[in-house]
């Protein structure tokens, strides 16, 4: 008998199936952008797209970290609070006169450290990620107000430069430093996921943790690593947030974890793990950004429509994932 008869599906059906969620997101994005351009003249301005990146750079970075966690089948509720805490700590340390570089290093260490501890609790004590990162979220948010009840402004030269520096073309279109940082993070993450053993182990564990273990993959190390990476991304996001707002505020980014999770899911990453791309997450963040921009342009629609539309999209994409049966388990 011929071997090809053993395959269950013709090969042409295979490829789009896996990429379908991402393609759906891409299509959605193009449709929404098309609507924007056809309805509002100003929408076709390139700067509109750049602004979406500028306004959502920190979200993108945090969503990249969340992509790692969700790919293993976990979840990290702490990211919004960790970002806020990072911004808060930076503002506080700068206020107390520490040099900018040192502040940057310290601020960037706190997030990964918390992520590492959470990963350890999840792995060694077998407590659900949901609960552990919930505690992490409480802790980080608590630290924010512990540092200060009020917003701390940042006046440091490095920070203000970073905040105001524009990288543009001669026609006046520009992006901020945050956008560049976000793109670097995206590229590094995409490389790690596609070309390193760590990245491949992330996918393997999300696909089937028992198999991964029997194949001799380092389950614990990888799990702890993804929460550490998520913490690092949240910290970078927090720094970008402080560039963006030039302050550390105790109540900033409340509920951001939901936007981040929504962006990752809309970007085609399956919440049960094992399937998804950083590129999809970029699209997911863009979808959220375009929705916000459209609603701003419209003027008659109110901001709460954003949430309703995001909820609707979440439903549509989860249903799509269910229908095409990406849940391998």
């Amino acid at each position: 008998m011929s071997v090809s008869s053993l395959t269950t599906r013709p090969s042409w059906a295979k490829l789009p199936r896996r990429q379908m969620p991402v393609l759906a997101t891409l299509a959605l994005l193009l449709v929404m952008y098309g609507i924007g351009v056809s309805q509002y003249q100003a929408f076709s301005n390139v700067q509109v797209i750049f602004n979406i990146f500028i306004d959502n750079g920190f979200l993108l970075v945090i969503a990249v970290g969340m992509t790692f966690v969700i790919l293993t089948g976990g979840i990290d509720l702490s990211v919004g609070s960790v970002a806020a805490m990072t911004a808060m700590v930076s503002a506080w340390l700068l206020q107390s006169g520490l040099p900018a570089l040192l502040v940057l290093v310290i601020a960037l260490l706190i997030g990964p450290l918390l992520g590492f501890l959470m990963g350890c609790a999840i792995h060694f004590f077998d407590i659900q990620p949901f609960i552990v990162t919930l505690a992490g979220m409480f802790f980080a948010r608590g630290m924010c107000t512990f540092i200060s009840n009020a917003s701390i402004p940042i006046t440091d030269g490095f920070w203000t430069t970073m905040s105001q520096y524009r990288i543009g073309d001669p026609r006046g279109n520009f992006v901020s430093v945050s956008v560049i940082v976000a793109f670097v993070v995206v590229l590094v993450a995409a490389y790690v996921l596609a070309y390193t053993r760590l990245g491949r182990n992330v996918y393997a564990i999300g696909g089937n943790p028992q198999s991964a273990l029997l194949m001799g993959l380092p389950l614990g190390r990888t799990r702890i690593a993804v929460y550490t990476i998520s913490g690092l991304c949240a910290a970078i996001g927090g720094i970008l947030l402080s560039f963006y707002t030039l302050s550390g505020a105790p109540l900033i980014a409340v509920g951001m974890e939901l936007d981040v999770i929504a962006a990752v899911v809309i970007g085609g990453t399956v919440l049960t793990g094992g399937s998804g791309y950083v590129f999809g997450t970029v699209l997911g963040v863009l979808v959220l950004g375009v929705i916000q921009t459209l609603i701003t342009f419209d003027g008659s629609l109110n901001s709460w429509w954003t949430k309703i539309v995001i909820g609707g999209l979440l439903f549509a994409f989860i249903l799509l994932q269910r229908l095409i049966g990406i849940r391998y388990k």
Partner: peptide, 17 residues
């Protein structure tokens, strides 16, 4: 956790609506 996340996000919007 995913099913109820939908309403968690959209519900806030509905309430504000």
């Amino acid at each position: 956790i995913i099913a109820t996340l939908i309403l968690m996000v959209a519900g806030r919007g509905l309430a504000q609506l």
